[in-house]
Nucleic acid binder design. Structure first.
Length: 422
RNA sequence: GGAGAGAUGGCCGAGUAGGUCGAAGGCGGUCGCCUGCUAAGCGAUUAUACGGGCUAAAACUCGUAUCAAGGGUUCGAAUCCCUUUCUCUCCGCCA
């Protein structure tokens, strides 16, 4: 959420940002509502002041043993008027709030202006895509042939885009999760959190999934709970409504969770394999920082995620998302894309974003430095990494001509010393 | 699921026969004094949000709101009533 006062005082800056994002939102209704609201508020507050002053007077008179019927009668009417005005004001506030909640974040100056993902800018590459001496197979064929991934039974038991991992497949998934968590906690200084996999709507508003993107999520019937689309939601909201100690910043958390996405509007995309599932595993990195440090921390967070791919020996590239491809809450995002032979392309495996104070304002997460007023922290997060896609990348990049898969060295201790899936 | 108790400021904790309570006291924080240094001590100060005024912006100032959340009674609610949420204790159930 943007600062109400900022939008009021800098409508042109906001309009310009919306244009860069190709967001079709007009600010005019908002500005008009804000004007109305402030006027009504001033009127109501004047009346409330009168009521307070006179009520005090009534108390004084009664104590002195005098009656004050005329004043009581007058105040009865004033109170009724106040009630009506408060109703109007509340209605205006709700409208303003809703508008504000649906305005996306302002892109950072350094974000390339563009229409869509085609305008994303490559920042760097690591590793060389392997030259196969044979026709490489896609991971869904490898997984089925080795009997370690079962797509068909996933569909039978639940539905499309749900999958069973089996035997060495399940073990590999678990190994990747543990390897990532251990690396981030031991090497990169993150404190592990194991969050709830459901959150209430307030938390979803805090990180920006609601009110705009309700159709992307699974809601639990007859409750206010949603399945989390990412651990970002519970972990960022960990400090919802809190004032943090400045000396404790930055706070680094990493978290494993299952992630649930309705994938509304993704029909026909990535229909085969592990790439686009309704449920997948992810290790998430979340940071709370001082405003001055957030962009430096974004670089570090991205590097932490890249490190996993380097250790696993998976080629990747990093791109800066253009204004047209930037997520709703983000001010700047780097996508890390891993090389997938089946796609003959780099495919997103991590998204590292700086939300600046956008989420912090929604979730009311602040910090206090000495005696100064509380300020909003900056929040960041990134996948460190998407586990299913990592497993897919391992299967494809480490496949052998005879259909087996070599296990990357760092994962072998997590697989009981096993070096190959066959 | 049943019965009961509770929710007050950064923290702890007073305050309920409604009235000057944004809220005693303590802790913590900040500033000053004192002390060879540290500790201790003394004094002062210390909520947040929003709106208006004044500003380049602050500071400042005026006002409003906030004692879990929402509603009600009343001229007036931290205090009374209702609903919801959460916490704790006991019982039941359960991995």
């Amino acid at each position: 959420m943007l600062d109400l006062k900022f939008v009021r005082n800098n409508p042109d800056v906001v309009k310009d940002a919306l244009k860069k994002r190709n967001a079709n939102i007009s600010l005019e209704p908002f500005l008009k509502l804000d004007e109305q609201w402030r006027q009504k508020l001033a009127e109501a507050e004047k009346l409330k002041n009168k009521r307070n002053v006179v009520s005090e007077e009534i108390g004084r008179l009664k104590k002195a043993g005098r009656l004050a019927e005329d004043l009581v009668l007058e105040m009865r009417e004033v109170s009724a008027a106040i009630k009506d005005m408060d109703d109007e004001i509340r209605l205006l506030e709700q409208k303003i709030q809703l508008t504000l909640l649906e305005i996306p974040n302002l892109p950072d100056q350094s974000v390339p202006v563009g229409l869509d993902e085609n305008d994303n800018v490559e920042v760097r590459r690591w590793g060389e895509p392997r030259q196969f001496g044979f026709e490489p197979k896609p991971h869904w064929d490898i997984g089925e042939a080795l009997d370690i991934i079962d797509f068909e039974r996933g569909s039978k038991v639940t539905g499309a885009r749900f999958t069973f991992y089996k035997g060495a497949g399940a073990a590999l998934e678990r190994a990747v999760i543990n390897f990532m968590l251990d690396t981030h906690t031991r090497e990169h200084g993150y404190v592990e959190v194991l969050p709830p996999f459901m959150v209430n709507s307030n938390s979803m508003i805090g990180t920006g999934q609601l009110p705009k993107f309700a159709e992307d999520m699974f809601k639990i019937e007859n409750t206010d709970y949603y399945l989390i689309p990412t651990a970002e939601v519970p972990v960022t909201n960990l400090y919802h409504g809190e004032i943090l100690e400045a000396e404790n910043l930055p706070i680094y958390h990493c978290a494993y969770s299952a992630c649930f996405r309705a994938e509304a509007g993704a029909a026909g995309r990535d229909t085969r394999g592990l790439i686009r599932q309704h449920q997948f595993n992810k290790v998430e990195l979340v940071k709370f920082t001082r405003p001055e440090e957030s962009y430096k921390e974004l670089e570090k967070l991205t590097a932490n995620a890249e490190k996993i791919l380097q250790l696993l020996g998976l080629p990747y590239r990093v791109v800066t998302l253009s204004t047209g491809d930037l997520g709703f809450s983000s001010a700047k995002t780097y996508d890390i894309e891993v090389w997938l032979p089946s796609y003959n392309a780099y495919k997103e495996i991590s998204s590292c974003s700086n939300f600046v104070d956008f989420q912090a304002r929604r979730a009311n997460i602040r910090f206090r430095e000495g005696k100064s007023k509380p300020r909003f922290v900056h929040t960041l997060n990134g996948s460190g990494l998407a586990v299913g896609r990592t497993v897919a990348a391992i299967l494809e990049n480490y496949q052998t001509e005879n259909g087996t898969v070599k296990i990357p060295e760092p994962l072998q201790p997590y697989m009981g010393g096993k070096t190959e899936i066959n």
